[in-house]
Design a protein around this nucleic acid. Sequence first.
DNA 1: CTCCATAAAGCGAGTGCTTGCTTGCAAGCT
DNA 2: AGCTTGCAAGCAAGCACTCGCTTTATGGAG
Lengths: 197, 197
Amino acid sequence: MPRHYEDTETRRRQVAEAALRTIAEDGVARFTSRAVAGRVGISDGTLFRHFGSKEEIVLEAMRLLEQEIEAGMVDSGDPMEDLEQFFHHRAAFVGEEGSVGRLIFSDELIHLAGDEGRQVVEGWRRRSVGFLIDRLQRLHAEGQLRQDLDVPAMSMLVQGALLTFAMQASLGRAGSREDVRRRVVHAWRTLMKVLTP
Amino acid sequence: MPRHYEDTETRRRQVAEAALRTIAEDGVARFTSRAVAGRVGISDGTLFRHFGSKEEIVLEAMRLLEQEIEAGMVDSGDPMEDLEQFFHHRAAFVGEEGSVGRLIFSDELIHLAGDEGRQVVEGWRRRSVGFLIDRLQRLHAEGQLRQDLDVPAMSMLVQGALLTFAMQASLGRAGSREDVRRRVVHAWRTLMKVLTP
DNA sequence: CTCCATAAAGCGAGTGCTTGCTTGCAAGCT
DNA sequence: AGCTTGCAAGCAAGCACTCGCTTTATGGAG
């Protein structure tokens, strides 16, 4: 059988994607270098020709996720629209992509990714919370949100709602894409009812 | 040096507690039979005299948690009081006991606990959600909760708030016991403001 | 167009380490 | 004496990772 050849750049992307799929579908316990290599269709020996360590693979996979995470944080000028955009994007993302929830929740994986991985995840958290607080603050100051609630409390409600989606995806009980989207819309309506005067 | 002898019953309890402490303090990745044995002060060989497998250890540890989980679900006759009790108890529990969050979030651990472990965790979830829905339903019917919100949506808000505590504990950023308790009280006040007319 | 040297990518056996678990025997309790 | 509990060494399996060698792509010289 003839071998199939690809250059390092292509392989690195394929491996990072395969790593995310493996984590999402098989779980962290079965996330081994052999499994990832098998998914790409190369031997585990070849895998380590393109990556120096398993830690590097996790970091590359994180970089793939990072783009998606950043994409959810836009600045349209209207804080309310930003917030809605953020909530929908993030909820759909963590609700559909099972690997995200596992990555964030699994100290196992973060431990695997080393100090650098820990910093990456911590960075995501800080940026996301910062974004949330900022938009809520502005809306609160404009009087568009209930004045008897403080901003951190409202932030907790929004984060909590997002966590329920991550949790469901992590437990594999997310349902179809359409189903997730419907629940996201409903959750957002509920939050609006609850946060606005 | 003289050996210290304990009967199986005592050792099983000690081991289960040590397992929870190990998961909470060292993380799932370092939760090995040797580490647990070392914490108890016995060799890993002795550990397997009292337990048939690591899976059994996890199940025994789960049984320890189960008592605490059940303790949070009382029936005082007043649904609102039940709900408040439940929220405070559960939030303080998952917020202070880091192992709970890790246990619930880690598919690694659940995978380790086998089918029986998966059923145990699924049972917790079902019972907890059932409890929540039941009390909310009754309060909603009595008109004590906002009629423009549906019960599942309110349940999501409560669960979400609880998840934020589990998440913080799992990430090791819980803070002191007093600190957690203060935030729990604040979260409950926020929920009440938001759910009642 | 052919030939061949070189580099890149692939393979799979092998290495050392850790893990869950076993076993042979010693040490204490009853 | 016998039963339980303990230890330390050891085992097979699985892991991340290495290495020697093979196979393919490339590209310039003849």
